[in-house]
Design a protein around this nucleic acid. Structure first.
Lengths: 249, 249
DNA sequence: CGCTCCATTGATTAACTTCAACAACAGTGG
DNA sequence: CCACTGTTGTTGAAGTTAATCAATGGAGCG
């Protein structure tokens, strides 16, 4: 498939072991990326675990983990955007998550990955052996609790998406998506942000087709709710966005 | 809303404290109910936690936890079937999960519940304060690990459902639902089982309408793939069920 | 027996997908 | 710098799926 090669961003030796941070001070929530200040935080959940490698850079669309392969390691996202992808038996694609800096790939893996992870943009990630995570969790209760809270928050987000996919119209899905993106990658107070993913990724995330996503965005633009260029979004009236959808059409 | 009253199944005093079981021997998977032998297991994950109350019985359709209320406690299901329900802004309903004996309500709750839980059938549950779970997790790494694995397994199931809701046709959703039910509540080796939930619950679980669920079941019956009475299902050819859907129609 | 609730079937409509064409943009090499 | 080219995004028209609206059937229960 993809032939691009991962390249280290730093020449540090592998297997470096840093001193363990104190049990306190783990990020409270699982999505530090949601708060821009935390996005640049010097310390993240998996800092200082033994066996962690320095950052590895992946090119756009490059596969980070492959569906069905043994889950020997987790990957913590340091920069960029990653999508988790699952396929149906007959080959249709569903993006089950977009991940951002601070998020971790593979927390919920058991023996093998049941999805593949691909770089949406050029992205830097840190590989951490699952054994290191497990043993740290076994000895450090605060760390284990932080992991559990992170999983719990992801579970809540997934549940919200079940409602979106099961019961919302195309227009509602798109509007909720824009608001979610604003919250995760936007700057608080600013109505504009850039989408890291293309229309195809958005469509597969929302359970729609590319064309329906386009039409939905165009419709919102015509109603002066948003401004759209290829990647740049401006929410002209974020508060009105959900309300405008209740009446549909 | 519902006015049925919860009644204790046993006259034991509340707040009983049993001796802690050994750290080893927790159920490996999060869905002991999936294996019928484990369904009748004498010990479950939350056995022996301080503050656990004896079983409480809920009538059909009775609310167990309410959306938006503080998550002071988890509820472990001892018998019966429970649904987790979320509503959209405009009042449409999505069933985000069906839970069975061994499953726990509220593991992923943070401050408040973001869904309501209701008894699908008459059900018995055990209330366990979250504080007891948290403090046990803080001191018992094996227990914390079991909790995390349980959450991870639920996360995987939720991801599979995202694919189902986002990318599968009505017929495919219904077929997958039947196979899932067979795996969770059926007897291994037997092609028949009884659905605990009605058509409305199934529809809200699959993101469809009642009518579409009915038509799908009828269609499969006409094609001799299944036999259906109101609640009783027989999978005449479980192996052919997914294959028969690829060609759709 | 009659009532109520739930399930089923039919007819029609609406929403979204599919198929098709075109436009806009980015990258490349001349 | 610009033409060329491939990719991504947008719009239009037709087709399909599932929702909606409506009526009937059937089981359980007082």
């Amino acid at each position: 498939m993809l032939t691009a090669t991962a390249t280290r961003t730093s020449p540090l030796p592998m297997g470096q072991v840093a001193q363990l941070p104190p049990a306190e001070g783990y990020p409270a929530g699982p999505h530090p990326a949601a708060t821009p200040s935390a996005r640049a935080a010097a310390t993240t959940l998996l800092d200082g675990l033994p066996g962690a490698r320095p950052g590895v850079t992946f090119a756009r669309d490059q596969e980070i983990v492959a569906d069905g392969t043994p889950a020997h390691a987790c990957w913590e996202i340091l920069s960029g955007c990653v999508r988790l992808v699952s396929l149906t038996d007959d080959g249709r694609r569903q993006v089950t998550d977009f991940l951002y800096p601070g998020d971790i790939i593979g927390l919920e893996a058991l023996d093998t990955f049941d999805y593949s992870a691909e770089a949406v943009t050029r992205a830097t990630l840190r590989r951490v052996p699952r054994g290191a995570i497990e043993s740290r969790a076994a000895t450090d209760a605060a760390f284990a609790g932080a992991l559990r809270r992170m999983l719990a928050e992801r579970m809540r987000a997934a549940r919200a998406r079940l409602v979106l996919l099961g019961r919302m119209s195309a227009a509602q899905r798109i509007a909720h998506f824009l608001l979610e993106m604003q919250a995760r990658i936007g700057t608080p107070g600013s109505p504009t942000f850039d989408l890291p993913m293309n229309r195809s990724d958005i469509a597969d995330y929302l359970g729609l087709t590319i064309e329906t996503v386009c039409r939905g965005l165009t419709d919102m633009r015509r109603r002066h709710l948003i401004a759209v260029s290829r990647t740049h979004i401006t929410l002209r009236d974020a508060a009105a966005l959900p309300a405008a959808l209740e009446q549909l059409h």
